[in-house]
Design a protein around this nucleic acid. Structure first.
Lengths: 151, 151
DNA sequence: GTCCGTGCAAAGGATTTGCATAATC
DNA sequence: GATTATGCAAATCCTTTGCACGGAC
């Protein structure tokens, strides 16, 4: 009961927040946008593809056209709400942009994603870049392997 | 004259080597394969896409179908002769596999690619992986930015 | 009521594949 | 001569786009 209440409270708050977030970036409050945003919040550890998002929402009785999913994700990316990655060579995956840069370690079997930051690695990259006269705009470090469960 | 002779010698040697390399991996010696292999040797610092390879060879009066370029590159990759990368989200680029692992720094303007290895970074990755119980199978570190000339 | 969002179907671009012809060994 | 390569066109996959309708403000 209490848990249910807390959970409900949490979602009411989340819903309001998301509504405001959308307004802030100039996007109208629509069900597809709210649902996709919420799904990304709930899946902090999974990086989802457009198709996964569509399927998941369909299972939750929210049928949203794939084109809409792509469009919404594109708008979110432009607005700085989400980040788009391409880990494998299949399709893009999306995660909420919480403003904290990090790199990724991906299980090649179950696709679980671990985020990490290592100041040492960050610093070495800057040194290497400056040695070659490069000005870094971005970097991507992806480690692939077998996670604890899959190895 | 002497230079011409040396150059010719170099190519004769290269040609023989490539012929043997192809035989070694069970591929027949054909002009498309030899030309593509040679082009990749000559472009040690550029990572070429299938289309660039086709265009370059066409300019050299070697018209090869794009499908063949893709097929040959695929066979080369399977045979361990080349490595395939996806730096931007446009198309794959290919480089000869010389067996020396390295990471890449790519100019976002002129697309020049600098290869580098940093033992420090390599070591930190292993530590991070083991902290999370991961067994690394592969990693990709790409640094993007402006090179010395383009900045 | 205006403007923006959605769904559907069609287009798009890079890569792959099927099939008949042509080359290698 | 048998087997493997090639070229062309068609197919494929994920993603984007055009257009008519419906919903937000």
């Amino acid at each position: 009961m209490i848990l249910g209440l807390l959970t409900r409270c949490k979602y009411v708050r989340l819903f309001k927040m998301n509504k405001e977030n959308l307004k802030k970036v100039g996007l109208k409050t629509t069900l597809p946008r709210l649902k996709i945003l919420q799904l990304l919040e709930d899946n902090k550890n999974n990086h989802l593809s457009a198709e996964q998002i569509q399927r998941t929402l369909a299972n939750d009785n929210q049928d949203i056209g794939l084109a809409t999913v792509y469009r919404v994700l594109g708008q979110f990316e432009k607005a700085g709400l989400v980040i788009r990655h391409k880990f494998d060579e299949e399709s893009f995956v999306y995660e909420l942009d919480r403003g904290n840069h990090h790199d990724h370690m991906i299980c090649v079997k179950c696709n679980v994603v671990v985020e990490f930051v290592d100041q040492n690695i960050e610093d070495r990259q800057k040194e290497i870049a400056s040695q070659h006269g490069f000005i870094i705009t971005e970097h991507k470090l992806n480690i692939f392997g077998f996670c604890n469960k899959c190895k």
